[in-house]
């Protein structure tokens, strides 16, 4: 008889039942709001160009391509659906991002992504909090206090400087004083450092943080801010030091979107990272008319981890990179 126990799942059955319950609650929430569930492809001929996301690739889907890519989010397909007149939609999507398995990351994970027509960023932020509070209730937790705070306020409250009014030199010195060691950081990377290493450990674990109006360099697919050219309509939701959700009031300008993707690839080249095929069908859909909307992606494994007060997503995943 083999003593191999490798086949066994790595989280208790009870957690699997709790995941099923969570997914059912989410589906019922969106059914009540008349948001339609959709399914979109896992494999795509085009790729996400984001500098900080590493994409899996595999054999080509169609003969004339070299390879195809596993989606890092269903966003591009969702926008093509929205441009086709789908109305409000959501998906519970398996997505893939290369990277080490850590407390908060597994290369394959589940995102809840949803889009709301004619919602501005603030409106969608409210809906994220409403859903989280509802799910907390279903999991026997009290309503949590939520702090709505801009990226600028977050920095000035915790580190006493304005991220939009600090010179590159000063920012670089602040990072070094805070223990950064290595080659000069770009402005964006230095802010990421201050955010992740300096600010996040200072946040209250019992409070949910809705952080909004990120620097325009971190806009990705978000609309620029109406009043401040250096900011964009992007938000994140943090709970217990964990980034649970990332949302945008969506950019609808196809030319601007194409320019950002091309910039990504330019920077990829500079950083010796592979240049990736831009999703021209998404750009064409936007040029045809993406309706005004806001959308957000929420990590389901992280959410379940927080709801069950676990320390690592591996505790809520029966199968992970190490045993799948």
């Amino acid at each position: 008889m083999s003593k191999n126990t490798d086949w066994q799942i790595s989280s208790p059955l009870q957690v699997i039942q709790q995941r099923a319950f969570l997914l059912a609650e989410i589906r019922s929430y969106f059914a009540d709001k008349k948001v339609m569930e959709v399914e979109t492809p896992v494999l795509s001929s085009a790729s996400n160009t984001d500098l900080q996301i590493e994409v899996f690739n595999t054999q080509a889907l169609v003969a004339h391509n070299k390879s195809s890519f596993l989606r890092t989010s269903p966003e591009f397909f969702h926008k093509r659906l929205l441009a086709s007149g789908s109305g409000d939609i959501f998906e519970l999507a398996k997505v893939f991002r290369l990277g080490e398995s850590t407390r908060l990351h597994n290369p394959e994970f589940t995102l809840l992504e949803w889009y709301r027509l004619n919602f501005d960023m603030k409106h969608l932020m409210q809906e994220v909090v409403e859903l989280i509070q509802l799910l907390r209730g279903q999991f026997g937790l009290n309503e949590m206090p939520v702090s709505v705070i801009s990226y600028q306020e977050l920095f000035s409250n915790h580190l006493n400087f304005d991220p939009f009014d600090v010179s590159d030199e000063h920012l670089s010195r602040l990072a070094q004083d805070a223990g950064y060691h290595g080659p000069l950081l770009s402005r964006t990377a230095a802010l990421d450092f201050m955010f992740g290493v300096q600010i996040e450990p200072l946040l209250n674990d019992e409070v949910g943080y809705l952080i909004h109006d990120f620097p325009i360099e971190q806009a990705a697919l978000a609309k620029p801010h109406q009043l401040y050219a250096d900011r964009c309509l992007r938000f994140e939701f943090l709970w217990g030091g964990v980034e649970l959700a990332n949302g945008y009031q969506e950019l609808t300008d196809a030319d601007e979107q194409l320019r950002r993707f091309e910039d990504d690839n330019l920077n990829r080249k500079l950083m010796d990272k592979p240049v990736l095929p831009i999703d021209t069908r998404l750009i064409a859909a936007m040029a045809n008319g993406l309706p005004e909307c806001s959308g957000v992606a929420l990590g389901i494994d992280r959410l379940l981890m927080c709801l069950l007060n676990k320390q690592s997503i591996s505790e809520v995943m029966p199968f992970q990179a190490s045993n799948s």
């Binding site: 996301i53 990421d192 980034e243």
Partner: peptide, 10 residues
């Protein structure tokens, strides 16, 4: 490992 949102990892 510190990975703020979608940004640079440290």
């Amino acid at each position: 490992e510190v990975k703020p949102g979608k940004g640079q990892a440290f």
